[in-house]
Amino acid sequence: MPVYEYLCNDCGPFTDIRPMAECDLPHDCPQCEMSSPRVILTAPNFFCMPSERRKAHATNERSRHAPRTSAEYKASHGPGCGCCSGNKPARLMTKTKGGAKGFPTARPWMISH
């Protein structure tokens, strides 16, 4: 269950763990027992999250709302990139019927993107 923040007019802010179905309902203050509305006082605790997970969240947010264009994708790969340029000799690069490129002799343990 998530932790929600509430603000009592007399006692100040307090937090409580409640079911998500009750997220918008007011809650009684633990000190004076007055009904208090839910408020958002602090940002989510992303700083406690490992950096790999933060990067994954950032990537998911970017890809969901603003996917990269083909120009942005090509800009992230430098000139002579093995996946984007056709400068590889035919013996180092193979193509399947679907158009996928493969590099069987260069590094067989790597998967091309």
Rank of each mutant, 00 (worst) to 15 (best):
F103G: 00
S35C: 03
T15V: 08
E22H: 09
W109N: 11
S51G: 04
S51M: 08
D24M: 08
Y4K: 07
A58I: 07
V39C: 06
A106P: 00
R107D: 12
W109E: 15
R62P: 00
F14A: 11
R68L: 15
R64P: 00
G86E: 15
T94D: 10
N87E: 14
S36P: 02
A75E: 12
A100Y: 08
M49K: 11
H77Q: 10
R53S: 13
S35W: 03
P108V: 01
P37C: 03
C29L: 08
P50E: 12
S35L: 14
C8R: 09
C81E: 09
Q31W: 06
A71F: 04
Q31I: 15
P108K: 10
Y4C: 03
R107G: 02
C81W: 05
C84K: 02
H65K: 13
K101T: 10
D28T: 06
C23H: 12
P50C: 03
M34H: 08
I40S: 03
T105K: 15
C23N: 12
E52M: 04
N87F: 07
T105L: 13
T96M: 04
H57F: 12
R91M: 05
G99Y: 04
G98R: 12
M1E: 09
C11L: 03
C8D: 10
L7D: 01
L7W: 00
F103P: 00
P2E: 06
G102S: 13
T105H: 11
T59M: 14
C83F: 07
G99R: 04
H65V: 06
M20Y: 07
E5G: 01
C48Q: 10
C29N: 04
R62Q: 14
L7V: 00
C8M: 06
A75L: 12
H65M: 05
F14R: 13
F46M: 12
P44G: 05
V3N: 11
P67C: 04
G98E: 14
L7F: 06
